[in-house]
Design a protein around this nucleic acid. Structure first.
Lengths: 338, 338
DNA sequence: GTCTGGCACTCGGCCCGTGTGAGTGCCAGG
DNA sequence: CCTGGCACTCACACGGGCCGAGTGCCAGAC
């Protein structure tokens, strides 16, 4: 096991490297931190840390930089979550309070998170299946053409067109709308399938086909790829990535455009508590030089979706984690109010 | 006025520079194009073109590159719009046909445009005010709390929460909903304000306040900042920008994040026909080294919104214009069908 | 056993001088 | 008006030498 001081050395290396973006040497370390020992001692500690794989040298005769394993240890054992200052908290609240609808909430959250962390922000829309039904609307656009509108308690709205084989009378439509709503309003979308499965049977023979069509579109909507949506922002922060970034930035931008990849990434994060994935811990190869800090948020106790940031492995973990956690809490509050 | 051959030389310079990304010299020009004259003659022509401000040298003893003015002449006089190949057309259609809702249409369009042009794509959502009302829904969430849902013929859905001073009965609500819809369905949103202005008067005294509140929220929604939304994609293509791009790419990414800036940019484009803005013709300073190709699209004859791409001034204008125009047409078709 | 100061060594980055070649402008002749 | 020739310019690539930060190792001190 590593001695107390060696851990302290690792912490100092991480902090300095995050600050300066340059490999840190033994002498500089002793000057900037009160370690109470000489550079030579630190050198020995560094050699040990390198043997264990926590730090590495880019080339001989350069300082050390932390490895993914080093950051992992730092995050798990050495770093806390830095709470935001109260002016920052107020700013968050003010900024989010002005939102007019869900798109606006998500858009503002993305901008806020990007600005606070100076990194790329990713915010997932509240998942349909984890939300609660506020209302289901059915509109007749034409005799045999309906529009289905789903509204969740988090303010999300989805609509789908439905082509029916046969015309559907206005009374039948009103009937279906009423019965559908009485069954599902206030229930979770995930439970909708079983709540409606026997619905067609209670209709007259003529209408059963259309009712089934409507229900199947409804159920499809809940499992579709677009069920999960997200918004990203702050990509301009990628330009602060590093010196050599033509090659670094490219795959990251590409990965960010693939929403499927990001959704998977967020999906891997724990539902509660914060998840930090560092460098090669991310499966996608475009993101092996980035870290992802993600957390769930929701209007109640349960997470309805996740949000987080993507940045270089060399990031200020305590500060980033603090910002991500704080933003998630406020977004949850806002959603609960709406 | 410039002679026929000098225009030909300019065209050759633009084409070569777009292809190679390197300043083009007189000798290389004569080798790659059948101009029928010697390098020395071309040199004289180039000197003349430089005097007129159409081309410039990055430094003495280097080839010439086109200036913004040179590209402008090229686009206006020398280049046509290159039509897409029929496989490309089929691919567009197939790709867009699978969309399930408006968000999906816009998302697919952005990806498609980015892929076809290999540049950054910008697609504006159909403007509310230019669309037609398909339906207005009012839901009671609580005795004194309503939700207003607007649905356009292009499939766009907006919702707003309304806090009423007094409870509003279910019959009154149904009444308002019916009267509202009978007045506005099928009309353009832009005309809604005058269509509903006398509506409160026809209600009983008790309900007038709430009706007015509902209407004022409705009218606000039409003028709000969020009325105009857009989606961007293909930012990874910025990495092909140039060699020196740390500094080039940064302001562009920043400008792209400011949706307000982009909306203004698109707003400046002509409603019909294609608009090309080159380099410094763009007011925003982050975009002075980019060109914007934009065009309106719509479900009928009239444009309901715009879409386009942002790329380096050194872009393949004929090809880009062809792709932008084709995509706009297909999106219009898709929207008309839905 | 642990820490410390000293010392030789390594190696990337910077500065600088040189050579090369692409490209130009100008001019005299066809 | 076009062309070939010629002198000139200048960015860029190459190579050598210097510098300094940082290292590993070792002998001695606490």
């Amino acid at each position: 096991m590593l001695s107390e001081r060696r851990l302290e050395v690792l912490r100092a290396i991480v902090q300095d490297y995050v600050g300066t973006e340059e490999p840190v040497g033994s002498k500089a370390l002793t000057e900037r931190h009160q370690l109470g020992v000489s550079p030579a001692t630190v050198r020995n500690d560094m050699a040990a840390l390198e043997d264990e794989g926590f730090i590495a040298q880019p080339h001989t005769s350069a300082g050390r930089i932390p490895t993914d394993k080093g950051y992992r240890l730092f995050v798990d054992k050495l770093a806390g979550v830095k709470p935001l200052s109260s002016p920052e908290r107020r700013a968050i609240q003010n900024f989010l309070d002005g939102a007019v609808d869900l798109d606006d909430v998500v858009g503002r959250t993305v901008r806020l998170l990007a600005q606070l962390t100076r990194q790329v922000a990713v915010v997932q829309y509240p998942s349909l299946t984890r939300s609660t039904v506020r209302h289901v609307e059915l509109l007749a656009l034409a005799p045999a053409r309906l529009m289905l509108v789903l509204i969740t308690d988090t303010g999300r709205v989805e609509q789908r067109l439905i082509d029916c084989q046969a015309p559907f009378g206005e009374t039948s439509l009103a009937d279906l709308r009423a019965r559908l709503n009485s069954r599902v309003v206030g229930r979770r979308f995930a439970d909708v399938p079983q709540l409606v499965q026997d619905l067609p049977e209670s209709f007259e023979q003529d209408d059963r086909g259309t009712v089934s069509t409507v229900l199947s579109v409804l159920l499809e909507t809940l499992v579709e790829e677009t069920e999960e949506r997200l918004m990203i922002g702050g990509t301009a922060n990628l330009t602060r990535f590093g010196h050599d970034f033509p090659l670094t930035i490219r795959p990251v931008l590409e990965a960010l455009e693939e929403h499927v990849v990001l959704l998977k990434l967020l999906g891997e994060a724990k539902d509660s508590g914060m998840t930090v994935r560092i460098g090669h811990e991310n499966a996608h190869e475009g993101l092996t030089s980035t870290s992802v800090v993600a957390v769930g948020y929701g209007s109640g106790d349960e997470a309805v979706a996740k949000l987080g940031v993507v940045g270089p492995t060399r990031m200020d973990y305590p500060g980033t984690m603090g910002a991500v956690r704080a933003v998630a809490r406020y977004v949850g509050q806002i959603l609960a109010e709406s």
